[in-house]
């Protein structure tokens, strides 16, 4: 078996085992590196959740911070208002996010291409305002966690980050495994067919509206799980923090940088972008806030200019040219 074939088959489980072993060998524990690794996995999971509808399905949504926010508020509401564990809030939040995704997307799916994207922009604004003035969920102040006992019951750890690390690793593994399975099944083919030509897909028996709604609901459900994690990790939630265009952009940009509509792209995007963002924020902060965003923007512009396929596009380019050389060699060997 050649190395590419090996990676295709075993790369994914091997990667999961390595990631699960990091805390055991002491790489993840306390400190900044652990924080960065957690954010890499979180952003990768968010981007991959978005990739289902935005990448495979080709419906570029700028509305995912709404679903992320509903998930975050679900967990925070359970902890801060109902004063229970976050778990029922996580589940209810994720289900609500899926429901909202269906209700909101149904009219938006009548629009195509850029018009769909623009409509989703508006939806973020609507939800942001709504949560700002809604006292039931804390209004503009948001919800602040009180001090809780450490452990899985409250999904809270005050110093040691290993609990959070395993928590996000589970979400990461869930999202990526689901997408891996979908991309190789009928649903994956149908989503890509819709992206490449909706009318053509319909002529081949694909119920495109139903398919897009299902993909959006799943995507929103997974985004909400990430949001719940985010609230638990930061001990608080407020509208600008979770339901904003900034947050929506993260879903989109990480995926685009890594490679839209590919399985590995969201992880690669997060690996490049998150450390860059966190370290530049930490070390360049004396230059004023927003330096990380400037670097962020610059990379995206350069990437769009030279390789719209993202990091995966670059990899594809090199492996193609390598394949071509080896094929040529193969032909000469056969003829000699």
């Amino acid at each position: 078996m050649n190395p590419t074939g090996f990676f295709r088959r075993f790369g994914w489980p091997v990667l999961l085992v390595i990631l699960a072993a990091l805390p055991i060998v002491g790489i993840v524990g306390e400190g900044f590196l652990s924080h960065v690794l957690i954010l890499v996995l979180l952003n990768a999971a968010m981007a991959q959740a978005w990739n289902i509808i935005g990448g495979y399905g080709g419906q570029v949504s700028f509305g995912h911070s709404v679903f992320f926010g509903i998930g975050a508020y679900g967990a925070a509401y359970a902890v801060c208002v109902s004063e229970t564990t976050p778990w029922p809030g996580v589940l209810i939040g994720a289900l609500l996010a899926a429901l909202v995704a269906i209700l909101v997307s149904y009219p938006c799916f009548k629009l195509k291409g850029h018009y769909f994207a623009i409509a989703t922009f508006a939806i973020v604004e609507i939800f942001n305002r709504l949560f700002m003035i809604w006292d039931w969920v804390g209004g503009a102040v948001g919800l602040d966690y009180t001090i809780l006992e450490d452990g899985w019951k409250n999904f809270t750890w005050s110093v040691d980050k290993r609990g959070y690390y395993y928590g996000i690793l589970i979400i990461f593994a869930l999202v990526f495994s689901l997408v891996r399975w979908i991309s190789r099944s009928r649903a994956g083919y149908y989503l890509r067919a819709i992206r490449e030509g909706q009318e053509t897909a319909e002529s081949l028996g694909v119920n495109s509206t139903g398919m897009k709604l299902a993909a959006m609901a799943l995507s929103a459900f997974l985004a909400a799980l990430c949001g719940a994690f985010y609230a638990q990790y930061n001990f608080r939630v407020d509208p600008p923090m979770v339901m904003s265009l900034d947050m929506s952009m993260k879903f989109v940009l990480v995926t685009i940088l890594g490679g839209i509509g590919t399985f590995r792209g969201p992880l690669l995007g997060a690996i490049v972008l998150v450390p860059l963002q966190e370290y530049s924020r930490a070390y360049l902060s004396r230059l004023g806030s927003g330096v990380d965003l400037i670097i962020f923007g610059l990379i995206i512009v350069l990437m769009m200019e030279f390789q719209p396929g993202g990091i995966m596009g670059i990899i594809q380019h090199y492996s193609d040219s390598k394949k071509r050389t080896s094929r040529r060699r193969g032909v000469t060997e056969a003829s000699s």
């Binding site: 490449e196 053509t200 319909e202 002529s203 694909v206």
Partner: peptide, 24 residues
Amino acid sequence: MPSYRVARKGLARTFQVVRPLKEM
């Protein structure tokens, strides 16, 4: 009837202006 249901009934069509699903 919506076209995807017509297709499922067993009536398949092609397009005059070809529409390959390009990236596939």
